[in-house]
Structure formats: structure tokens, C-alpha cells
Amino acid sequence: MNVTIVDYQSGNISSVINSFTEVAKGKVNLEVTSNINKIKSCDKIVLPGQGSFKSCIESLNRISGLVDTLKDFAIINKKPLLGICVGLQMFADTGYEEAETRGLGWIPGKVSKIDNQNGKFKLPHIGWNEIEIQKESKIFKNIKNKSHMYFVHSYEFIPEDKSVISATTDYSSKIVCSVERDNLFGTQFHPEKSDKIGLKLIDNFLRL
């Protein structure tokens, strides 16, 4: 099996590469690339994202054919794709970080700034927080409800269809921290920074 981590110059993704490399040993062939042909021919994709929604979308669009290739892979051919942090947020129709920016439009919804309740909650939301699993999910297999994951974000994905939500976390409000729809998976938290439980989630994705 061939798994591709898409490197589209969206910031430092070394921890994503390191954790997937650790879990993938002997199980799958892992490649880090933005080569369109290699992405087309792989079996699974990991779409990381660091920085702002706007900068990540712009970075994707700078690589000719990449957005269409990802759409064909995930939406047309329905192969497994995991979005991490802004990688998840970009599934949305629109993001409002820096400026109103059109997203990939794969899961209807928007990405808005977390309501910090007049400074009651610090932004960005950084550190370990408990997740509440909302539905049976392939990537949460053998992961206990109320596990702790690591977060770094100021914006949240608000999907129109609440049935895609697979987990939430409590920070100012119930924030969507994981989605699952068919072959599409996304986490707002960073599994690659979430110790053994995060590695288990990565293992679940690679075993799909």
C-alpha cells in the first residue's frame, strides 16, 4: 500500500512525517511529495496544514493541478484521505482567517474564529484537551472516549451537516475536533503530537 503525505509548503510538517514514518514501518510505503502523478497513483492521502486557512489554500493553488487531483482522489474516486488541523478546515466551503477565502468545498460548512467570550478563553487554544467521541468512527477504533489530544488553533470548522461530526472538544463551546464522512477523515487536533493515542489513530488510518 502506498500512502502520500502531501507537502505543499504549508509550514513545518516534520512531526507529521516522523510520526507516520514511525507507525508505517513494515506496513505501508510512505512518500512525502507534491508530485501530481505520485498522488494520483497512491492508495491513501494525508493532508496536513499549518498556518492560516488563507495561506494553506493559496499554497495548494500554487501547485498546478493539485486541487483537482485531490478532489478526484477523495470525492470522485472516494479513496481515504485524512486532513490534519488546517488540512481538515480546508474541507469547508469558506474560511474567515485573515480574509474570506474559498475552501475546497468537500463538506459544506465554514471555518470561523473561536468565540473566546470576551477574553475568558485564551486564543489560540493550545495544549491537551479531552475529546468526546460522537459516533462510531474507523479512526477511533480502540481509542477510549474522553482521551486527551493535543490542539493548536484559533479557528473552528462548523459543518452544516452535524452527522459528519465524529468528536468534539469543550473549549468555550463544543468545538468540532474530528469529522468522518465515508472515505473523508479530518482531525482538528494533531495526532502526530498526541503521544501514543495519536499514534494509534494514525495506525487506524493506515490500516483502513
Rank of each mutant, 00 (worst) to 15 (best):
F91Q: 10
G127I: 12
H190K: 13
P108F: 05
Y171Q: 11
E136F: 10
G51T: 12
G51W: 07
E192Q: 08
I13G: 04
K120Y: 08
N61A: 13
V67F: 02
S178V: 07
S64P: 01
E130C: 04
Q89A: 13
K113F: 13
I57P: 05
F189Y: 15
T94P: 05
G51N: 05
G109Q: 07
S178D: 02
I5W: 02
E180W: 00
I139C: 11
T4C: 12
L184D: 03
E58T: 12
M149S: 08
N204Y: 07
E58N: 14
W128Q: 09
D203Q: 14
I133G: 05
D203R: 07
G103W: 00
P159H: 00
E97S: 10
Q50R: 05
N2S: 08
K25T: 09
N12H: 10
S15M: 06
K78Y: 07
S166I: 01
A24N: 14
L60K: 04
L47P: 02
S147I: 04
L66V: 13
A24E: 07
S166W: 01
S163V: 09
H125Y: 12
K54F: 12
S59G: 13
W106T: 06
D43L: 03
G119D: 12
L88Q: 15
I17T: 15
K141E: 14
F157S: 01
I158M: 05
A24Q: 09
S178Y: 04
K193A: 01
L60I: 11
V86Y: 06
L199W: 04
H190Q: 03
K79C: 08
E100M: 07
D170I: 10
S194H: 03
S172V: 12
L47E: 09
Q89D: 12
D195R: 11
S112I: 14
K79T: 09
G87E: 13
T187P: 12
S34H: 13
N204W: 12
I84A: 06
H190D: 00
L82Y: 09
E22H: 07
P48N: 14
S19G: 10
S112Q: 07
N2R: 04
K40C: 10
F189D: 05
E132A: 10
K27Y: 13
N129E: 13
G51S: 09
E130T: 15
Y171R: 01
P191D: 06
C42R: 01
R207Q: 13
R62T: 11
D43S: 14
V6Y: 00
F185H: 03
